[in-house]
Design a binder for these strands. Structure first.
Lengths: 200, 200
DNA sequence: CGCCATTATGACACCCCTGTCATATTCAAT
DNA sequence: ATTGAATATGACAGGGGTGTCATAATGGCG
């Protein structure tokens, strides 16, 4: 956790510092990120940085905390609409991600870079993510029970597919900043997965 | 290109050097790879390294050349069987990749790390890859003409899906070293894509 | 004002890296 | 055996990085 001095910082200075950190961590991997660049950008001295944070990891955790807060703020009042099936649930989720990407591209980028980092510290952080797969799995099973999805479809496989495909779409459209097209493409993908490619 | 001195090297020494390079480049990104570690492992002096190669890039290119050769050796006499459709072509390709992964996991790993590297040099190298997507696109169009795939399926989309899903499967099974399961999973995925998830 | 706690600073030690270069060694050919 | 070319070597320059620490500046408060 950041040192007391950090929390005592006057607002303006703290914001400058946070912005510099976000800029750095959304441009470089944690391993590649440079404290030198951060302090230069924030206009503070090397010594001060270490007055605020224990070290680079500490600083990173502080930023992650801020991101988590903001994420919660944006996602909390999203209609947790009872999704009719996995596919709808999926699209709901994607629309939320679109909002997130548009509102906070730098935050999203930090997430992307996290996935690319191989350092122990980051690997440990990333591992702590059970999440979404379980959610999809349960939905798929429910849909099978309701006769919406064929019962001989392997839930695990379908879930992997959904997650895998979209990782690609997300990434692709994020670099192009074409978020609307992303939703369209996803709808088409889901449609295809439901109907299959075969001529009937 | 490597310097003449490199090519004059006695076999044993050259092999030790190459092995050290492969070990390094299959463990670290090009940017993160360290000449210090390479020379230590190869048991040569720093000066010697630069007697053989212009610099790190030069060394990397030499290794890529060796990999390309080996890849060709393994892939050349694979039955370029006239695949019946995209899905068969896809599985053919995947089986080749399996052989490659098993035969040369380190080489495969170098490819993976290349994708993760953001340095200019590597980005430039990676870009020069038109490849597989075009191939899939043409096959998909052919299948549509032959009435195997519904004509209202977007070829680009299907191609993206195939490539995207498998990137995930490949990666996942590569880390688990479970190549047989990889083929099975891919077959299941392809089956699902063909038939769709809907109950008919 | 004077005093003390808090905060700010940049020089410093130490680490790792790449690429160079004068010098030493090896080796083949005369 | 001598000599000259090819090869080997590690000290060195120069750059970047992190974390520390003695010292300086600041700011409230008695």
């Amino acid at each position: 956790m950041a040192k007391p001095t950090y929390y005592n910082l006057e607002k303006d200075k703290q914001e400058r510092l946070i912005d510099a950190c976000i800029e750095e961590f959304s441009t470089y991997t944690f391993s590649e990120a440079s404290i030198n660049r951060i302090i230069k950008r924030a206009g503070i001295s090397r010594g001060s940085f270490y007055q605020y944070f224990e070290d680079k990891e500490d600083c990173y955790m502080e930023i992650l905390g801020i991101i988590a807060q903001e994420k919660y703020r944006i996602f909390k009042d999203v209609v947790q609409a009872e999704a009719g099936n996995v596919f709808e649930a999926y699209l709901n989720m994607l629309r939320q991600v679109k909002i997130w990407m548009e509102a906070q591209p730098r935050y999203y980028r930090i997430g992307v870079l996290m996935e690319l980092d191989k350092s122990n510290f980051i690997q440990k952080l990333t591992k702590q993510n059970p999440g979404m797969m379980e959610y999809f799995l349960s939905l798929i099973r429910k849909d099978q029970a309701n006769g919406i999805i064929r019962s001989d479809v392997d839930p695990q496989l379908l879930s992997d597919m959904l997650i895998g495909i979209n990782q690609k779409l997300l990434m692709e459209h994020f670099v192009n900043k074409d978020y609307d097209r992303m939703i369209e493409a996803s709808e088409a993908v889901l449609d295809l997965i439901q109907k299959g490619t075969m001529v009937r």
